[in-house]
Amino acid sequence: MVFGGKLPLTRGVTSIEGSTGGGLSTWALVAGNETEDGVGASAFVTRVPLSDYDFSAYGVAIGFFDRVELSLAHQEFDTGATGAALGLAEGFTFEQDIVGLKLRVLGDAVYAQDSWLPQVAVGVQYKHAEHDWLLAALGAEDDEGFDVYVSATKVVLDQSLILNATVRGTRANQFGLLGHGGDQDDEYHAEIELSAAYMVTDRLIVGAEYRTRPDNLGFAEEERGYDVFAAYALTENLTLVGGYVDLGSIATFDDQDGAYLSLQIGF
């Protein structure tokens, strides 16, 4: 395979919402292996077997000249046996599509090591969930909505660290799988996503992420999410991510956590 141009792992991995980032959070990096001289692409599949549900996501992203990222992702939230306990059918699956657009606006995460200025990107994610009748019954105001965010990412090579902070304006319930806005709260809120990773080698990073989320629905509490992860660049093009994630209470079922696995391919 021809070397696309980016250094291993400096393209990050793909978040569950399809945008380049960590596992849970979106970062300011642009998808694909190509530099400012080319158009790159990436694809991912992530599986998160939680305590009482099965979450999975897959998608593709295109990175234009390390500047603009267009992403498409599909998420499925399989209630399995829990579905019956929720008064739904067993194996009932919540689903949504996410279209993301990210624009890198300033700074450089990798090369500008003589400056503290991070790479900053702004972006929008349009999310459209299925089963609008059910989402309405659960108290959601809308089955579709927009998240907007600002991300700042810096590789601190001197310390072998990758740091990210993102502020997201959102009304999404459980990432948007349960629609947007709710009977309890329908306003946009600024939520934060924090990530820190240590570069063990040039092919292995280990890190942790923390993400706050809205709590809009009266019938069930929604909590923060966090994870710890390891990402390993198997080849120039293939990255394997494994981790542990805790998403708190989901749809009245508490302590939803589990190991997760994600495979990313990038060109």
């Binding site: 990798v110 090369y111 500008a112 003589d114 090579l157 310390q159 072998s160 080698t201």
Partner: peptide, 27 residues
């Protein structure tokens, strides 16, 4: 950078020390 990393690794330079040098070269 990749070739330099290979050479540094072969010389036994730890990843952390490699990165400290690359931080100087990157700009």
């Amino acid at each position: 950078v990749q070739h330099l990393r290979t050479a540094m690794r072969e010389e036994g330079v730890s990843n952390r020390m490699q990165n400290r040098f690359l931080a100087v070269l990157a700009p």
